[in-house]
Amino acid sequence: METLMAYVIGILFAASIYMMLRRSIVKLVIGLIILSNAANLLIFVVSGLTRGSPPLIPDGAGEVTGVVADPLPQALILTAIVIAFSVLAFAVVLIRRAYEVVGTDDLDEMKDTDT
């Protein structure tokens, strides 16, 4: 399972870089969205996938028994998703506004501030 997920993550990263390197700002933002998902998935998989054993302490016992899933990466992803959501919401508004002001969605036309 981890091997399969590793390939999936790799493909996601590759796809996001490809999208970010294209000229349209819409595709740029799509690339950013895929990128944040790839990073989240990476955190999820990297500490190992444990199926069907939630980290719950059974009634009466003082600690968890047997192998359980690590809850921390999931907490991290939850935080990362919330942050990515707000940042990407900003990015979407930004490209809309940029399109209005500059009048194009072509990144090659946006070179005025470059040096």
Partner: peptide, 20 residues
């Protein structure tokens, strides 16, 4: 706007790399 697109993209990329 033009400056911000570059600033936002590269900083988000760096954050994703940091997170990974």
């Amino acid at each position: 706007m033009e400056g911000a697109i570059k600033y936002v993209t590269l900083n988000l990329f760096s954050s994703a790399l940091f997170l990974s």
